[in-house]
Design a protein around this nucleic acid. Structure first.
Lengths: 149, 149
DNA sequence: CTATGGTCGTTGACATGTCATCGAATAGCT
DNA sequence: AGCTATTCGATGACATGTCAACGACCATAG
């Protein structure tokens, strides 16, 4: 009954794509945990923080950049702070806010993790996609992700 | 080994695709919850159960078909049973196992949910993808998801 | 038969995400 | 300035997923 509404092509493509949506992040996340002891969320926080020259971001801006809720980032950063990967400073511009800072330890973990992670993305994904496919996938991803929520 | 880092093309495509991996399931999941009070996981259980003529599956087989752990399905099916969407029967073939059965209520909820869900998949995804893109996406998804874990 | 090892679903501890709410601080309007 | 509405990050309740263990049951070699 559930396939009545989609054509056979749509149904099969949607099924295959859903499988990918589940499997790919799971595999890359497992690689990351095994190689570096980081979750995908940890890695995203660390690598985004490292983009700033002073390795500091206001929590709210970092959350917006990553498209996370402030609540999620507050919870997650508290856990990462306990592990010594980041720490928190008062925001001199806004006494409500705080700055998340990448610690030297956190930066070291990121530097150690990055090459393994890149290998993982290559071997699990990029190696199996042609340049044309990759270009198309990028256009398609941007087009759909940019739709209004 | 080749370059440790990604080329600009690879980097941008991977970023865009990662955004899609997050945003698309989130949007379709929110539609489903709003329209039908179901999570994506609920919907998957209900629709997979409905594929069997007698609406019954051994838990283990259902978990394998959906690529879930038995633990996850055990937890989730317990919650769905409380809500009256499914129930559990002893497996006559194997006294260790149990059969998950789609209740009439669960089937009714699924019937109500399906058209909205299909609309959601169309408006969030399929409408914005050409037939060529969809065919390519299917090949690519299958190729990558079929890689060994 | 019976011993032994594997598989079944369940369970509890834990990690992580959402949501509503809070007090504190800011921004905007007059 | 003073009042009010908004935004900040934190927090607790809750939902959901992972993992390792468990007792119960099954299958098979001897």
């Amino acid at each position: 009954m559930e396939t009545v509404w989609l054509s056979a092509e749509e149904e099969q493509a949607w099924r295959a794509f859903r499988r990918l949506l589940i499997a790919l992040p799971a595999r890359i996340g497992r690689d990351l945990a095994r190689d570096s002891g980081l979750s995908a969320a940890d890695y995203e926080v660390l690598s985004t923080l490292s983009e700033k020259p002073d390795r500091r971001w206001p929590l709210r801006e970092l959350a917006a950049k990553m498209e996370w809720s402030r609540s999620r980032l507050s919870h997650h950063s508290a856990r990462m702070q306990v592990r010594g990967l980041i720490d928190k400073e008062p925001d001199p511009q806004d006494a409500r806010g705080c700055l998340l800072r990448l610690t030297d330890d956190g930066f070291g973990v990121l530097e150690q993790a990055a090459p393994h992670h890149v290998d993982s993305v290559r071997s699990r994904f990029l190696e199996h996609v042609s340049a044309d496919e990759l270009a198309m996938l990028r256009r398609l991803s941007t087009r759909i992700a940019d739709l209004p929520d």
